[in-house]
Amino acid sequence: MATVKKIVLLGHFGVGKTSLVRRYIDSAFSEDYLVTVGVHVKKKDVIVNNEPVTLIIWDIEGNNSIEKARSSYLLGSQGFIYVFDVSRQETYEDINSEMKFLAKNHENVPVCLVGNKSDLFTEDFTKEFFKDKEFENCYFTSAKTGENVEAMFLDLAKRTL
């Protein structure tokens, strides 16, 4: 019997939360931006440490602060993916306070920080541009190319166990 884990994607609108889920679940991508209203929930069965795990992935509407997100969406979460857009500063300038909010209100729930749209920069430039401490353990993904998407989801899945 598989363990069920609820994972919630958070972050500003337009950062690529839905695209990341679509890439991970359907191996598909579209350049067109279509706003997410409410929450879309998808499911994926994975194997983590040789054990079957069912990830219930909550792709919620974008907000410029987690405090503004509907609290019922975050209830019972066992892992968070906080996504920002590497090409939009407003989506990562308050990362510290967002992480503090999660640590305070969802203690012991693992969080994965993700800088999406990394295909817009070279790897070296991304490392240099995001060299501050807060981005130390950040995953840089591209829903467009698929880079690091699977690795990021699997890493978080492991940390929820």
């Binding site: 409410g38 929930v41 998808k42 219930i56 909550w58 019922s72 019972g76």
Partner: peptide, 27 residues
């Protein structure tokens, strides 16, 4: 019906009065 409900089931025993979750895409 939908994975949304699969994700919510673990919360059901904790419902004392009500639990409201708006705007769910049951696609």
């Amino acid at each position: 019906l939908h994975p949304f409900f699969e994700g919510v089931i673990p919360l059901l025993p904790t419902v004392k009065d009500s639990l409201k979750i708006p705007c769910v895409n049951v696609d």
